[in-house]
Simulated assay, not measured.
Amino acid sequence: MSRSTPEWKLITESNPKSPISEGYRMLRTNIEFSTIDQKLQVIMLTSSKPNEGKSTTSANMAVAFAQANKRVLLIDADLRKPTQHHIFGKSNRNGLTTALFKQKDIHEVIQQSDTENLSLIHAGPTPPNPSELLSSKQMAALIATTREMFDVIIIDTPPILSVTDAQIVATQSDGVVLVVDSGKVKKDVALKAKASLSHVNAKLIGVVLNNINRKHSDAYSYYYEDINEA
């Protein structure tokens, strides 16, 4: 199967019994139990560089939470290079930017996915000022409103070393997961990404190492690690 097809990207939906799908369920469980004192409701995903698999991880993680009977909202806040509407095969005509510019009510931009319990807010038309839009009062209000509507909110953001967007959204999130392509990204780059999150006092709850080369055929393609212990 081609890696570019939605069926491959949403493996938790198309092949829920696969080892990779089990890896996403383990990621879900690790996130749920990563903290005792604070509820992790708004979870942001980012990467250090483009093409590390953050959007695919965001989508499959959202499906995994929905399969656990959680009311889940997946927000595509990568306003520069949105992907989620491609993964889920939905329209991107209206979305986050439409709501933030007050052209549509929030309830009008929430789309239902084909997965039970999973709703979507796609990026919408590309704005001229993504960073300013994500740091606006409208964005804060949107997150506050959706907190009342959903159990889990997953936000897909641009690579943190490329633009400031991810740092902005991180300050509005309860926790951050960093997706790292183990075959492409060197340790110093990953540490620089971690430092960028620390600079805004973001709560980094873990790292997903993507494309790990394992010898055993039943090994997971995704590995979750508590970065605070690394």
Rank of each mutant, 00 (worst) to 15 (best):
K81I: 01
H216S: 13
D156Y: 09
L178C: 06
R214T: 14
V163Q: 03
E225R: 10
F33G: 06
K194W: 10
L79D: 06
D105T: 13
D78L: 14
G95C: 02
D114N: 14
S162H: 07
L96A: 08
R214G: 10
L161R: 03
P130H: 04
A62M: 04
A141M: 08
L178D: 04
L27V: 06
P82W: 08
Q103G: 13
N228Q: 14
K192E: 11
A59H: 08
Y223T: 15
A193C: 12
D218G: 10
T171D: 01
V152M: 15
K17A: 12
Q41S: 11
D76V: 04
S131H: 08
I153R: 08
D114E: 14
Q41E: 14
S91D: 14
Q111T: 07
T5K: 13
G89S: 03
Q84H: 11
V189T: 15
K194M: 14
P82G: 07
S91Q: 08
K9F: 02
I143Q: 09
L73T: 04
K186C: 02
I168V: 15
R80V: 00
E7H: 13
H199I: 07
N129R: 04
M26N: 13
H86M: 14
A170S: 15
R80S: 09
V72E: 00
P128M: 10
V200G: 07
E22R: 02
I154C: 11
A166W: 00
S48D: 05
A195Q: 13
S173P: 08
D174L: 01
S4F: 11
A190L: 12
E13S: 12
G124M: 03
L100K: 05
S136G: 09
I205W: 00
N30G: 04
K90S: 11
A202M: 05
Y223P: 00
D105Q: 14
S47E: 01
A141Q: 12
R28I: 10
E132V: 11
Q41H: 12
P16S: 03
L191S: 09
P159K: 06
R93P: 00
E7S: 13
Y224F: 15
T145D: 15
I227A: 01
D151P: 03
D78C: 13
T157W: 02
M149W: 06
H122W: 00
S162F: 07
D188F: 12
V189D: 12
D151Q: 01
I154P: 13
S4K: 10
L100H: 06
S136E: 03
E148Y: 01
Y224Q: 01
S47R: 03
N210G: 07
I227L: 02
A140F: 00
H85C: 04
T56L: 01
H122V: 15
L191K: 15
L134G: 11
S162M: 13
H107A: 07
L100A: 08
S4H: 10
T145F: 10
M44Q: 15
S48K: 01
D78G: 14
I36T: 12
P19G: 09
P158M: 05
H199P: 01
Q112P: 01
D151R: 00
I160V: 15
Q111Y: 04
T157N: 03
S135N: 15
A68Q: 05
E22Y: 03
E7Q: 15
P6N: 09
D226T: 03
L73Q: 03
S136F: 06
I168G: 05
N92S: 05
E13F: 14
Q112Y: 02
P82L: 03
T57I: 15
V63C: 11
T5V: 07
